[in-house]
Measured scan of single mutants.
Amino acid sequence: MQRVNMIMAESPGLITICLLGYLLSAECTVFLDHENANKILNRPKRYNSGKLEEFVQGNLERECMEEKCSFEEAREVFENTERTTEFWKQYVDGDQCESNPCLNGGSCKDDINSYECWCPFGFEGKNCELDVTCNIKNGRCEQFCKNSADNKVVCSCTEGYRLAENQKSCEPAVPFPCGRVSVSQTSKLTRAETVFPDVDYVNSTEAETILDNITQSTQSFNDFTRVVGGEDAKPGQFPWQVVLNGKVDAFCGGSIVNEKWIVTAAHCVETGVKITVVAGEHNIEETEHTEQKRNVIRIIPHHNYNAAINKYNHDIALLELDEPLVLNSYVTPICIADKEYTNIFLKFGSGYVSGWGRVFHKGRSALVLQYLRVPLVDRATCLRSTKFTIYNNMFCAGFHEGGRDSCQGDSGGPHVTEVEGTSFLTGIISWGEECAMKGKYGIYTKVSRYVNWIKEKTKLT
């Protein structure tokens, strides 16, 4: 034993070699072989497995989906700052455009905790909710729209109204504003409101030439003092309507412009014939205590009207009353817009006519005020429907199939267009061939041609 100890002390290297040989010859039971080890760690190889990531292109799944990435790591994937920024906006807080917040056709661009709407022409605001041009839906104005110097929408209202708090709607500024039905039992019968379409306001006024200088022999019209197929109006439903009495009662109609003036057809009036105007009328054979009678003290036909040349060209006249009318729910003026808007309103496509005229061709006159909704007829169809001249200051309205029309005794009465609950004068009943005849239409004086003249002559002093 002493000898062994001496050998170990003198030859430590020998001992180490012996131990190493023993270990190498022993069977290893701690580690699995290569094949079995792979069965336990069965993990798919990654895209760049075996390579240094710093030297390969980034992978979106590896960089940002398996674990949260930084902007720089995302930049490695896209290799483009702009594309990385677009991805980053949604990656950080989701897609803010998912709810489609942009209105009126706006395009949404996502941002971090926010979004941006790219608005089409005519709109602005956070969600493109603000109209900035009158060309689109009248700028959301209830009545009139004008573009300011910086191309912003400025709404306005006709006389007797003021802008509401929203700067879009119009509200009454006087007790009985024009064009409004205020009798409670008839307010439910107000005709369907007309909503502004998209309009090209630059070209809204037709490029028409008034044929002022045409000389033409007097034409022989049949029954051209021209509501057939209409309905009984309720008291106060058309408070701007008046009836004219002269040699015979209810020979023509008219509309209240203001307390002192009536507008009617020029062919209705004769110099030297006494005319009485009755406002607030409903049943011409009954006294309903809503009527107001006034005498006409002055007749002003349009300066281009000449019955000797043509009885229905420039067929418009103004009547001055001896005493002002007292405005109330049964006696209310009709609204008159400017030339541009009167023309736009007419193009809405349908209007209402009213009167006490004959209820059928050569038949009896109506006792109760009649009204009828009539569609506008395109000019080409209008011209083809008659052998008589249709001037540019006239328009056609009615039904091709016949059966409904204005008729004798309705002449001078109103053709009105309702705009968001307020009625505007767009025409004056003038003439036609018979009444409600198939293929024939009622012919009306186009008020847009005469609004400046009306307003100039009827100013209240």
Rank of each mutant, 00 (worst) to 15 (best):
A317D: 00
L244W: 02
Y47K: 04
Q216C: 07
E73A: 00
K89G: 11
R226S: 07
P175T: 09
D378R: 06
D111F: 11
Y341T: 09
V368R: 15
T287K: 07
F87R: 02
N42T: 13
Y161E: 00
G442D: 04
F196A: 14
I309R: 10
F388E: 11
G50N: 10
G403I: 15
P414N: 15
L425D: 00
T194V: 12
L24Q: 05
A26P: 03
V278S: 07
S25K: 10
V4I: 14
E82D: 15
E72S: 06
E165H: 09
W240V: 00
I40E: 02
R191G: 14
S148Y: 07
G236W: 05
E124K: 06
R379M: 15
K137Y: 08
A397C: 03
A380M: 09
S182V: 09
C102Q: 02
T458R: 02
E54F: 01
V202Y: 12
R449L: 15
S184F: 15
E285L: 13
L20A: 07
S169G: 09
V242I: 05
R75E: 05
C134I: 03
V447C: 03
N100H: 13
K234T: 12
E418C: 06
T16Y: 13
K126E: 14
L14T: 07
V242C: 04
V227N: 11
A317L: 03
D223L: 11
D378L: 04
E67F: 00
E129W: 03
V416E: 02
R358E: 10
T381P: 05
I262R: 00
F71R: 05
L319S: 01
N151S: 10
E340V: 10
L318K: 00
P44W: 08
S365A: 14
G21Y: 15
Q167R: 09
T81C: 05
N42S: 14
S406N: 14
F238W: 08
V227T: 13
K152T: 12
C128F: 02
C134M: 04
S217D: 11
D131K: 09
K455V: 06
F360H: 15
Y371A: 14
N306I: 05
N48D: 03
Y312L: 08
V199Y: 14
D405H: 14
K387D: 12
M394G: 04
D338C: 05
K68L: 07
L20W: 13
A317K: 00
C170I: 01
L189N: 15
K339V: 10
P12K: 11
D405C: 08
A173N: 08
V359R: 13
C97Y: 02
C117P: 02
G229W: 15
T85K: 06
E98A: 10
F176T: 07
A366E: 15
N213A: 07
F221S: 15
G105F: 06
E285I: 10
R46K: 02
K45T: 03
E434V: 09
Y444D: 01
I309T: 07
A192K: 14
I112H: 14
C178F: 01
R46I: 01
G230T: 14
G106R: 03
M437Y: 13
A317C: 06
N452P: 11
F251Q: 08
A250L: 09
D249N: 06
C382Q: 02
T190W: 12
Q237G: 09
H303G: 07
R75L: 13
N42F: 07
C145Y: 02
R384I: 07
D200W: 11
T158I: 10
H400K: 13
E124P: 04
M65P: 01
N452T: 13
A9L: 13
E320N: 03
E456I: 08
D322E: 12
I299K: 08
E129Y: 03
I336T: 03
E82C: 03
V56H: 01
F71P: 05
E288A: 07
F424M: 01
D378M: 04
L319V: 06
G246L: 05
K459M: 14
S114H: 12
G236K: 07
L24P: 02
E72Y: 04
T276G: 06
C407L: 07
G229L: 12
V273Y: 08
Q185T: 15
H361I: 10
F121Y: 12
W261K: 01
L325T: 00
V4Q: 10
D212V: 11
Q57G: 01
N393M: 03
S411Y: 15
W453P: 00
A307R: 11
E27Q: 14
L325E: 01
N343K: 06
N104Y: 05
S430G: 10
L460D: 14
N80E: 07
T29D: 14
S148T: 14
R46F: 01
F55P: 01
V368P: 08
C145R: 02
K440I: 04
Y352C: 06
D338I: 04
V326S: 12
K51P: 00
D150H: 09
G254V: 01
R180D: 02
C252E: 00
I344S: 15
N304C: 08
G58T: 03
N166Q: 03
W240G: 01
V92Y: 06
T190P: 12
H361Q: 06
I344W: 08
H415D: 00
G357L: 06
V257K: 01
S184M: 06
F87I: 02
G21H: 11
E323F: 09
L383P: 03
K39G: 11
W88N: 03
V154R: 10
S448D: 11
C18N: 04
L425T: 01
V183P: 10
K247W: 07
F78D: 03
T16P: 09
A207V: 09
S148C: 06
Y201L: 08
N127G: 05
E165A: 07
E208A: 13
K39V: 07
I300W: 05
Q408G: 14
Q216G: 07
N203H: 09
K126T: 14
Q185G: 13
G230L: 14
Y47P: 01
E116A: 13
I262H: 01
G13Y: 14
M8N: 13
E193G: 15
I136W: 09
F176G: 02
Q57L: 03
A380S: 10
K293L: 11
C102I: 01
G58N: 04
F238E: 01
N213W: 05
Q96N: 14
I297T: 10
Y330R: 09
L318E: 00
R180W: 05
A207P: 15
K45C: 00
G421L: 04
S448T: 05
S182L: 06
F348V: 15
T218V: 09
N313H: 13
D232Y: 13
V263K: 00
A192M: 12
T342R: 00
A307D: 06
P12A: 14
F123A: 05
I336Q: 01
R162N: 12
C335T: 00
Y161A: 02
W356F: 11
F71Q: 05
V447Q: 00
L346I: 06
S25E: 09
Y91N: 06
E231D: 10
F31G: 06
N306P: 02
T81R: 10
M394H: 10
S49A: 06
N100F: 11
E340Q: 11
G50R: 05
G179P: 01
L189P: 12
N213L: 06
H282G: 09
E67A: 03
K362G: 15
R43D: 01
